[in-house]
């Protein structure tokens, strides 16, 4: 007896829709994955094979870029360590500050909340510009050549994140829970720490990841405020290294010896190798938080 096929009956037009969706999603996936594959293959290519452009399958395989990285391992590990430190501390402070800012804005009984929300929103649209910010951070807060240069400017608290968390609080945590806690005798700090934050895991994961990525990829702060090589993060180190290699390769002032050395330096492949090294922690962490992240992105955007 013929076995009945286990099939799902599609309605008229649904099959076409499924195919169209499949094609679009495949294209979008390729847009994301192709640069990543290219980055990996380029990092394993010899410098000479890259003269005529990038290829998915290198003409000549080489580990020169990674050998170069290994030679610089002391500096790279220090930069790596500093980046992790900045990311962990920055993300932790950012999460605390963002959620603490969002909590009163979500409270109906906090009368100035609309004024404060407006001020917050205003900063999302307008700011003092680079020069004014630079003057404030260096002259008033004296962050130049300090680790604070990575932590404070820009990334510490983001208006958009505050709005996301506030919306999450409003839309997902019934206000009567706060009222119940108040009547149970809980003060605001207890309500915030024991109820609001534990109930906001999805949105906290989302903004935590945004914030961590922001800190991890932040190279501009280092370029603007840091001159001490010991305080270079991995991104700043990558930028400085590329600038130096480029300088050696293009300058007219180089001696025969440096010219010879610079010709053998891996540039494109090294750039990709450092980018891969910088990407590894994100690739490791992402699968563990993916579920909460998607939940947070969906619900945080809902207007409360």
């Amino acid at each position: 007896m013929a076995k009945k096929k286990n099939t799902i009956t599609l309605m008229k037009g649904e099959r076409e829709f499924h195919y169209a969706a499949l094609v679009i999603m495949t294209l979008m996936m390729l847009f994301c994955i192709v640069p990543l594959i290219l980055m990996v293959t380029v990092s394993f290519s010899s410098e000479q094979s890259l003269v005529y452009g990038y290829r998915f399958i290198p003409d000549e395989w080489s580990l020169d870029a990674y050998a170069f990285m290994w030679a610089k391992r002391a500096t790279i590990f220090r930069a790596y360590g500093l980046t992790i430190l900045v990311t962990v501390i920055g993300t932790a402070i950012s999460l605390v500050m963002t959620s603490m800012f969002a909590y009163p804005l979500s409270r109906k009984d906090f009368k100035p909340r609309n004024v404060i929300a407006f001020i917050l929103f205003f900063t999302m649209l307008f700011n003092g510009g680079m020069t004014a910010s630079y003057m404030v951070w260096t002259r008033l807060f004296h962050i130049k050549d300090k680790i604070w240069a990575y932590l404070l400017p820009g990334s510490l608290m983001n208006g958009m994140n505050v709005m996301l968390v506030r919306n999450y609080f409003n839309a997902n945590i019934p206000y009567s829970i706060i009222e119940a806690a108040r009547l149970d005798g809980a003060k605001d700090w207890t309500i915030y720490s024991k109820i609001m934050v534990p109930l906001s895991k999805p949105i906290m994961t989302t903004i935590g990841l945004f914030s961590a990525l922001g800190y991890w990829n932040n190279w501009t702060a280092g370029i603007y405020y840091v001159n001490n090589p010991k305080l270079y993060t991995i991104q700043v180190y990558l930028k400085k290294l590329m600038d130096s290699i480029q300088f050696l390769k293009t300058t007219d002032l180089q001696s025969e010896a440096t010219l010879l050395a610079s010709r053998n330096l891996p540039t494109e492949s090294a750039r990709m190798a450092i980018a891969i090294i910088a990407l590894i922690p994100v690739l490791i962490v992402y699968p563990f938080i993916q579920k909460e992240l998607i939940k947070g992105m969906v619900v945080g955007g809902v207007k409360g």
Binding site: I177, A180, R182, D184, P198
Partner: peptide
């Protein structure tokens, strides 16, 4: 002060702490 009122309330939607 809310602590000194010694009032408890049961809400229609229970308002239990889900966590």
């Amino acid at each position: 002060d809310i602590d000194d009122r010694d009032i408890a309330m049961v809400f229609q939607n229970y308002s239990l702490y889900p966590n």
